[in-house]
């Protein structure tokens, strides 16, 4: 007998896998962004090496936003969300698990792929590791914050752009500490652990708080 939350996770995972696109499309989007940036700024390897972590982080942030507006929308439209609300499991946990599943299908491929694309940005091994670790620690925060924006725009047919407007300013702290950690990994004035610890704190805090905000939105907007 599976617990309801485990069943939900499996369901979300299966849906994401069958619809396809989510994870692999995000990775392709990341590759496209990493490819077009040098066209814009020129193939200067020193410059690319310096801004590479920042480019990869921004690209990952944008790739995460791609499918996020559908996080609750499909369930809102076909009524599954009402069913989930009626269940005995608190909606906050449901939101949390949906976020985890979304992170596993969308962000995890990015976390794996981004350091590899660091090659195109002239990154060294230490820096690639830093990018990977900082994305691994930081992207859950982006998913949780994004879930609030997705819940706020769930009833809108074209909420994607509005969701990005709502979510991006709130992602500033995660972006700052994520890029700092990624940059610090390849040497610099600050130790790698400091920004990474703050990034982890952001992820934990948003994981604890954002599901409540998103669940409150879903309950009230469904009324």
């Amino acid at each position: 007998m599976k617990s309801p939350l485990a069943a939900l996770f499996v369901r979300e995972f299966a849906i994401a896998r069958r619809i396809g696109g989510g994870g692999s499309m995000g990775v392709v989007f990341l590759l496209v962004l990493v490819t077009i940036v040098p066209f814009a700024i020129g193939p200067d390897l020193n410059l690319l090496r310096r801004i590479g972590p920042a480019i990869l982080w921004i690209a990952a942030l944008l790739a995460m936003l791609l499918g996020l507006d559908r996080l609750f929308q499909a369930d809102f439209e076909d009524g599954s969300l009402d069913q989930l609300q009626l269940g005995a499991t608190p909606l906050e946990f449901v939101v949390f698990v949906k976020c985890l599943a979304h992170w596993a299908t969308t962000a995890l491929p990015l976390v794996v792929a981004a350091p590899l694309f660091g090659v195109l940005m002239a990154q060294e091994a230490a820096s690639m590791l830093g990018i990977g670790v900082s994305l691994l620690v930081g992207t859950p925060a982006l998913t949780f914050i994004g879930a609030v924006g997705a819940a706020a725009t769930v009833s809108l047919r074209r909420g994607g752009l509005l969701m990005a407007l709502l979510v991006l300013p709130l992602c500033v702290p995660a972006l700052i500490f994520g890029v700092s950690a990624a940059t610090a990994a390849s040497g610099g004035t600050i130790p790698f652990a400091t920004p990474l610890a703050i990034l982890a704190a952001l992820t934990l805090a948003s994981g604890a708080l954002c599901p409540f905000a998103a669940a409150a939105l879903l309950r009230r907007l469904g009324e």
């Binding site: 609030v148 924006g149 819940a151 706020a152 725009t153 009833s155 709502l166 300013p169 709130l170 500033v172 702290p173 700052i176 500490f177 700092s180 703050i198 952001l202 708080l209 954002c210 905000a213 409150a216 939105l217 009230r220 907007l221």
Partner: peptide
């Protein structure tokens, strides 16, 4: 009414975030 509820939650989320943004921007 829907807009009010959505804006209210986003406003409060922003309220929690503003000191964090301030802190991170100072750090940055």
């Amino acid at each position: 009414q829907r807009a009010a509820k959505a804006a209210a939650v986003m406003t409060l989320v922003g309220l929690v975030n503003i000191p964090i943004i301030k802190f991170s921007v100072d750090w940055w």
